[in-house]
Amino acid sequence: MREDYGEIGNKLCYRLAEAIQMLPSSSPLLHTLHLNLEIPLNNVGDCPWSGHHDLIADINQIHLPALVTLDLSVNLDSTDEEFVDPNFPTTTNFFPFLNSHPHLLHLTLDVPGTKLENDLTFLPCLRSFTGSFKDAAIICDHPRQLDELVLKLVQRHTYDFPEFRTLPLRTHLSLTKLHVQALDADGKVVKMTNELSPTSLAQLVSSFPNLTHLDICIHGRIPQYRESLILLTKLQSLRIQLYKINQEDPYDSYMWDDLDNIPDPNAPVHKIFPPSDYIRQFDDVVPSLPQLAHIEIFLLADNVELYDDDCEMLFEPPQMRGTYYFCVRGGKVVLERATSTRKRRKTVGVVRR
């Protein structure tokens, strides 16, 4: 008799639980643990509820005395979003496990059912954190020697458009590296929710004035963020992610009087979105940043305008990706190299100057 979906899922959970229970004895000096649970859900059979519940309970009972780096994430992979039990996240609570490891230095947390609290034992020791804005507010609520913070906005469902909603964060003079990312549940970059507003960036800069490395995803032109950027006088490296739309559709040939000069639809990104435009946008920013040495512009782009009746384009991967690498010499921004990939041809072009 063929096993159903739920029985297979339960067996896998139990086997993983057994392996994890052995870690304290088999690896007493384990200092790094990455645990990414992919929970497949569908509407054709029973889900592994009991196995999943026991797995979380077993994880919460173990103690790894040498653990300093922890990466915990849970992703619900459903073929039918309406099938996801709304109570499921409450069964995935790793708070007891976190609280039993007071020496954690580096934490990555993407578990909707785990709620951080101010009295967690490891918080005074923590040096870096990767997670949501909400969890980061707890992490930053008290003075501590944080070095690096990665704020992630996760688009968990295809038709869900979450927004960056920054919360007031306590000032941390020790923080030197800040990353703001917009990702889907699988960790891939998304193109429509990567819009950190100038106001939100201003709030972050006021909380972390001593940044040397900044990685953000923004909406609009770089001069709109000038007032915040020029406050970061110690900034050495800046990376900006942008989503762009080519306003002209090269496939609509009726738009062109001279059919012999229709733009190449497979042109590299640097031809459609020239790097010289970004150099000009930095003209009024770079002079105020004496230590800035490296700038990277990462573009996600589509080659057609997104009309209201073509919403499906919003949910598809970008047609183009491009990255510009600049250096700053004598107060001037200079292009070092550019890379571009196109969805249609799946080729890579490199431009060097």
Results as ranks from 00 to 15, higher is better:
R2K: 12
V333R: 01
N42D: 15
S197Y: 03
C47F: 10
Q291T: 02
L33Q: 01
H106M: 01
C13P: 03
Q319W: 10
R337I: 01
D309H: 11
T114S: 12
K332M: 08
N210S: 13
Q236G: 02
Y324Q: 10
C140P: 12
L149D: 08
L178D: 09
G131V: 07
Y5D: 11
R337D: 12
L229C: 09
N194V: 00
K271P: 00
V286L: 04
C140L: 09
H270Y: 15
T212Y: 03
P96E: 09
D4E: 12
S100V: 11
D308W: 09
G322W: 02
V190T: 15
I216F: 03
T339N: 08
T90G: 03
E227P: 00
I218T: 13
L196A: 05
D260C: 07
L259F: 12
Q155W: 00
L37C: 11
G220A: 11
L259V: 12
R165D: 13
S228L: 08
N42T: 08
N266Y: 14
E316I: 00
L201N: 08
F282M: 14
W49C: 01
D80C: 10
L120N: 10
D249V: 02
P274S: 14
V111R: 11
P290Y: 00
G322H: 08
A182V: 01
Q61G: 03
A66C: 15
S25D: 13
S253A: 13
H172R: 12
R352S: 14
I218S: 06
R352W: 07
F95N: 08
L259E: 15
F161R: 10
H179A: 02
N60T: 07
R239P: 04
Q155F: 00
V304D: 06
S174R: 08
G330N: 15
N43L: 03
K343P: 03
I295S: 02
S197F: 04
E38I: 07
S132Q: 09
Q145P: 06
G220S: 07
Q247K: 10
L67G: 04
L72P: 00
K346M: 13
V150D: 08
Y325R: 05
P28L: 10
A57V: 09
E316T: 03
T176P: 04
D54C: 02
H106D: 13
Q61C: 02
D85W: 10
P143T: 09
I279N: 01
P48A: 15
N93Q: 07
P263V: 10
K343H: 14
P89N: 09
E81Q: 12
L55E: 03
D4C: 05
E38M: 11
G349W: 09
Q236I: 00
I138D: 14
P209G: 05
P24F: 05
L123A: 10
S228V: 05
A19G: 02
R15W: 06
V328Q: 06
D215H: 07
F161I: 02
E7A: 12
K188V: 05
E305V: 00
Y5C: 02
K343E: 14
M192N: 04
R239Y: 01
S78P: 06
K177V: 14
I20Q: 01
E117L: 01
L12R: 13
L238R: 07
H213C: 02
Q224E: 15
I295M: 02
L169V: 12
L242E: 13
S100L: 07
T114R: 12
N118D: 15
N93W: 04
I139C: 07
D160Q: 13
E296C: 06
